[in-house]
Design a protein around this nucleic acid. Sequence first.
RNA 1: GUGGGCGUAGCUCAGUUGGUUAGAGCGUCUGGUUGUGGCCCAGAAGGCCGUGGGUUCAAGUCCCAUCGCUCACCCCA
Length: 419
Amino acid sequence: MIKAITGTKDTLPSEINKWYLLENLVKKIFSCYNYKEIRTPVFEETALFCRGIGTSTDIVSKEMYTFIDRRETSLTLKPEMTASVVRSFIENAMDKKQSLNKLFYISPMFRQERPQAGRFRQFHQFGAEALGSNDPLLDAEMIIMAYNIISNIGLKNLEVKINSLGVPESREKYKTELRKFLAGKEAGLSEDSKKRIDTNILRIFDSKDENDQKIMADAPLLINHLDDESIAHFEKVKKVLDSLKIPYTVDPKLVRGLDYYTNTTFEIISGSVGSQSALCGGGRYNLLVEQLGGGAIPGIGFAAGIERILLACENENVLNLPEEKIDVYVVRLDKELDAEAYLLAESLRKENLQVEVDYLLRSVKAQMREANRLNAKYALFFGGEEYSSGEAVLKNMSEGTEEKINIKDSLSIISKIQR
RNA sequence: GUGGGCGUAGCUCAGUUGGUUAGAGCGUCUGGUUGUGGCCCAGAAGGCCGUGGGUUCAAGUCCCAUCGCUCACCCCA
């Protein structure tokens, strides 16, 4: 038996309505903030992600689905959206058409990681990118939009964490200081963290190793080494969040993994999923557009994991949708009248009713069981004696009441059904 | 890439110290008088017990390998 690829899964009809609901909420909220949807190809030239995300990151160094096409070009299934959006932004000269571009997306992403709770190899994100302004109000807007969507859906066990990484100059100065602090303490660090001293020293703060945590408890914090402008920027973001009573905490140890972040970074964490608890993450990237060959244009964005949000919903027992119902089940009383029964169903469907008929030539009893299983509001008995007088029997399934109606007069049927 | 747990009907799971034709509940299908659902009752279909090898008179049960699922580490949404 051929099975779905490891780390991928089918979204079955029984769960699709939750996706619709979340996607519609996403579109509605983004539209309130005047963000416009953008769709980009699922694959791009590999070089885009190497330059955009950073070759030293785990995503680029070991998690990408990369392949060579017939023209010997290296292509990669997109592991995240920001690089693609920025590429499109530059390629389509969006900054020349309007000075601020506010974009959103809902799209599959691909990363070759080991699957676990809330992590898949093909997963889906929605997110937003605002390109063209360094206004801290936009930083706040990103956090607010993400928080609104996630809390609107009914999730409770949430934590908003924010931090500022400042600008590269102050960050480099700080890293040197952190290295000085760690000098002589390497022996006590975990193997992973020893490596991080060279690769990504900030990430040592994130370590789950107890000894690492102890050592880092006294380490100098980046947030205390920011330049004045970054501090002012961060203060303004916090002020807006305070005014709107967004329940956030400043987490000086929140270090996002991708190379392109500057200034504000944030995450929304759920306590209701497994170890992969970040439902959403984002931040400002004022250098990325230029790095990808565009102008010196500031940007900020976030991405949220749909599967993780739905998992949290399941674990918190929210997002319980009502049972699906259909309007009418046409019960065929005579086998010979199957085509006529179908045509009757068709005329009702033209009036936008949800209608089902039997395609299996089953007994009336079996058809009624089916009607019940489908939660039909009405059963319409077609055939028999009534057929010769141009009538059919309409049964209200919840009341159990029946009445004769004229078949030709489909509008009268509909008025009965739609009341 | 590393480590733990688990693979028995469509689903959730039982299967006793290895011992006859592998079970239950739910679901599906058919019936319970001629053309009527839900509840109830009766019956039926549906399993190379993940795959391959080994031990044994005998393996769903023990051993090895392999594949898959799952959770965690790394990292990320």
